[in-house]
Design a binder for these strands. Structure first.
Length: 828
RNA sequence: GCCGAAGUGGCGAAAUGGCAGACGCGGAGCACUCAAAAUGCUUUGCCGAGAGGCGUGUGGGUUCGACUCCCACCUUCGGCACCA
């Protein structure tokens, strides 16, 4: 044992304190939240759970550093904070890695989880380790299956055949949300379309609520995320209009947002891959049928990348059929073209080339007529090639003539309604969520297919439907689920009739797992509930969610959808899962995302070995606003380490005894400490972590100066400051803070030490520096009493030599006095 | 193309409409040292010897006063992208 004067005890030893405190915390368990007698108010702080693909990286380090600031802050504000962690453990990367290395995805996944868990412990994350969940555990995914059946029984899970997104490389279908710019989110292959029977969740039934409830999150979620969600849901208002088609008994319904332009329709277009197109062309002459078949082949083969290429020529063919405009009886040729989508609206449109750019482009390509029905300031669309989409007055439109756009929409909708030819309607860009996947490493869908009985849900008491062992299964992607080959597993007796039946062999999209995991943390081991309803009442919804903006649409939309369904099913009593959301930025290196192929990868473990955990965490928080990206090339972990040593020395230099009354301490130092307390809280609560750290640095500078050249290390105000410093630093640098706390004479657990309240009586100012501006420019400043009168302040300002000089020959036009802070003089 | 956000020193950044550049990185200088490292202190927007002037993407506007509010433009980034 070294004594108190040995150099080792008086030096800041970054790695020594890590080794010293880690085992102490393991025993102390400061962040356990499960004590039922805990009377502190509750707060639920949640970090997005990681995918276990290897060890933690710099991005995790930023996310968990910032999430920890929030979680630790509320603990030290006296709250019982629930801050859990788990693993989003199912999914393609594990499966692909398993195939590549010829391993079971299980082993790979659990090894990575252990690796990450150990790194999180070292990183001093303030997680409650009693509540860990892993979505690939049967005890977890059993409840995915339960939820699926809840949805199924409500009619919210259904199976249908449709054209779906297909990734030819992953050999699986993808949800709309997983197609990014026409590419597979996971592997960047060009996504194509394929007709398949797949499971969907009926998100569209909740489209209105998902959109409207975003208003309740205003101010608490980043505006950017709210906008992205609104755009994604994409609600539009318009009308459905019925067109008779010659030779067809049923009219064809089209959707339009511009029913006011109905008199300007000059043709109709149906989506080539729609049933309607196939049906209509069947009644056409043979030549057209052949042409159509050819066109449809071309359309099906094209992927989204080709479709997205800009300035693409419009293509399409005439179907040889005619529709009738319901308002004027005109015959409109019916075309098919791939610019009309089969899965939006009704898959058929009325084309008004004068007032819709796409219709105009098509009309000009195919030499179809263009008729203006809305007079605007723009030129003739047929000549300029620019559709007139602005405001104007209706012409050539019978009863609508002379009306403005909005009035015309109302009027025509009314007319159509009366005549039974149409009605007001709305549409969404949002599509139903395709949740089945043709891969192994996911939650089996708890449905049994029986030739006699059809889809039969697995009984509740038969859950979970456990994923069979991967042993002996060929996981190579081949377009159908590998589970189909597990014959012992697939072949079952129908629960209904007892006859031979087959299990559904698809697995669920892993976004199902993450859509409700925040509830599972509340009772992570329950075999009775997905989540304990009482615990949900106590803790949910999440007060503060922290995670990357990459999940701005998919995960957050799905989790919001689940929450609304669970509310309707009576399982929760709130509408929105995440009350407040913080999106942290990314960690870059030299301006771009880190990657092995770019050669700019910075390894977290290397950084931790070089600078220590605390310096890395502090650097993450201090680099800038949390929403902004951090370029690791621009920041200085060495500078952070230097600062931590400086802070540590302050605590080490304190010589006064603990448990003293601070009232006798140096007034100036005390004032600085209490001003710090006030500002620091505000900064943290407003996510200005970088400014909060700057305030800590200022406090250290004040204390350093007080010790070296002020009141000295024995003054109790220095102790007061050092104690609050250790507490505040604990949010960013838990090891250093714990060691400082120990130097100050306390037992382990600075993370549980509550902040002192700012003593406002110490912050009362009796003088202030007043400033004087002449024509908006600062010309003088001087100290004045806080209660100075406006007249006195003005007199002082005008008497100032510098002010006189600035005014010079000019005459004073106006003097504004804001006592005691400011005098503003305007001249002319 | 449409929607949105952002432009402040050499760099990361701060600033309820009221002292622009807090805090830090980097730089310069000094002290301690035989020396170096570490540490501490001073200094550091630009131009100018100085007085002083100029400065928050550009141009206007509102205001006694604008990084902050309004309009237009430029640039960068993000989202959506044939959604009728």
């Amino acid at each position: 044992m070294s004594d108190a004067t040995s150099p080792v005890e008086n030096e800041y030893d970054v790695f020594g304190i890590q080794d010293k405190w880690l085992p102490v915390w393991d025993d102390l368990r400061p962040f356990a939240s499960g004590n039922p007698t805990d009377k502190r108010p509750k707060k639920y702080v949640l970090d997005m759970f990681p995918y276990p693909s290897g060890d933690l990286h710099m991005g995790h380090a930023e996310a968990y550093a910032l999430g920890d600031v929030v979680a630790r802050y509320w603990v030290q504000k006296g709250f019982n904070v629930l801050h859990p962690i788990g693993w989003d453990a199912f999914g393609l990367p594990a499966e692909n890695a398993a195939i590549k290395r010829n391993l079971d995805p299980r082993g790979w996944t659990y090894e990575n989880i252990e690796q990450q868990r150990s790194s999180m412990r070292r990183y001093a994350c303030s997680f409650d380790w009693d509540r860990v969940i892993r979505t690939c555990d049967p005890i977890y995914y059993r409840w995915n299956q339960w939820l699926f059946l809840e949805f199924y029984n409500k009619g919210l899970a259904y199976r249908k055949n449709s054209m779906v997104n297909w990734c030819p490389s992953c050999q699986t279908v993808l949800a709309n949300e997983q197609v990014v710019g026409g590419l597979c989110e996971r592997c960047d292959s060009a996504v194509t379309k394929k007709a398949l029977t797949q499971w969907f969740f009926k998100v569209t039934e909740y489209a209105d609520r998902l959109l409207d409830d975003l208003d309740t999150l205003e101010g608490n979620w980043p505006a950017k995320v709210l906008t992205m969600q609104r755009n994604w849901i994409g609600r539009s208002y318009g009308a459905e209009v019925q067109f008779e088609v010659e030779g067809r008994s049923e009219p064809v319904t089209v959707y339009t947002t511009r029913p006011d332009t109905l008199f300007g329709a000059t043709f109709m277009v149906v989506a080539p891959d729609s049933e309607l197109a196939t049906e209509l062309v069947a009644g056409a002459e043979a030549g057209i049928q052949a042409e159509f078949a050819n066109y449809l082949d071309i359309v099906k083969a094209s992927n989204d990348i080709e479709r997205l290429s800009t300035e693409r020529e419009k293509t399409g063919i005439f179907l040889g059929r005619y529709a009738v405009n319901p308002v004027n009886g005109e015959r409109l040729p019916v075309w098919t073209a791939d610019y009309v989508l089969s899965d939006y609206g009704t898959g058929a449109i009325m084309a008004v080339p004068a007032h819709d750019q796409r219709d105009l482009d098509f009309a000009r390509t195919m030499n179809l007529p263009v008729r203006v029905v809305l007079e605007t300031e723009a030129g003739d669309p047929a000549v300029t090639g620019e559709a007139a989409t602005g405001e104007g007055v209706l012409v050539n439109s019978g009863p609508l003539n002379g009306l403005h756009k909005a009035d015309a929409i109302a009027k025509i909708t009314e007319i159509l309604n009366q005549d039974g030819k149409g009605k007001a309607a709305k549409n969404f860009r949002l599509r139903d969520w395709l949740i089945s996947r043709q891969r192994y490493w996911g939650t089996p869908i708890p449905i049994i297919h029986c030739d006699k009985c059809g889809e039969v849900p697995v009984a509740q008491d038969q859950l979970p439907v456990e994923l069979p062992s991967a042993e002996g299964l060929d996981l190579q992607p081949k377009g159908t689920s590998p589970l189909g080959a597990a014959s012992d597993w697939v072949n079952v007796a129908c629960p209904n009739c007892g006859g031979a039946a087959l299990r559904d062999t698809d697995t669920m999209d892993t976004f199902v797992d993450s859509s409700w995991y925040f509830l599972r943390y509340l009772s992570p081991t329950s075999t009775e509930f997905a989540f304990d309803p009482q615990a949900a009442k106590d803790w949910a919804p999440v007060d503060q969610y922290v995670g990357g903006v990459t999940h701005a649409i998919l995960h957050l939309l799905y989790a919001r959808f689940f929450t609304k369904v669970l509310k309707d099913l009576g399982h929760v009593d709130f509408n929105e899962p995440f009350t407040r959301l913080l999106n942290q930025g990314m960690v870059l290196m030299n301006g771009s995302a880190m990657s092995k192929s770019r050669g700019n990868l910075v390894r977290l473990s290397d950084q931790l070995d070089e600078h220590g955990v605390d310096a890395i965490r502090l650097t993450m928080a201090f680099a800038g606003p949390p929403e902004d990206d951090i370029d690791w090339a621009d920041v200085s972990p060495a500078g952070s380490a230097k600062f931590l040593a400086r802070a540590w020395r302050v605590a080490n230099d304190v010589t006064s005894a603990k448990d003293v009354d601070f009232a006798s301490g140096n007034k100036d130092v005390r004032k600085a400490v209490h001003l710090f307390l006030r500002e620091f809280s505000a900064n943290i609560e407003n996510f200005k972590f970088n400014v909060g750290v700057a305030k800590i640095m200022e406090l250290v500078n004040v204390l350093r100066k007080a010790i070296d050249s002020g009141c000295g290390p024995a003054d109790v105000a220095v102790r007061e400051g050092a104690q609050e410093l250790a507490k505040a630093l604990s949010l960013f640098a838990p090891y250093t803070a714990e060691d400082m706390w120990s130097k100050l004479g306390f037992g382990p657990g600075v993370a549980l030490a509550e902040f002192a309240k700012a003593d406002e009586s110490l912050l009362v100012e009796n003088s202030i520096v007043a400033i004087v501006q002449v024509d908006g420019k600062l010309r003088d400043k001087f100290e004045v009493a806080i209660e100075i009168s406006a007249d006195d302040l003005q007199a002082l300002a005008l008497a100032s030599e510098a002010v006189q000089k600035a005014i010079g020959e000019k005459t004073i036009a106006n003097v504004i006095v804001r006592q005691p802070k400011l005098v503003s003089i305007a001249t002319k």
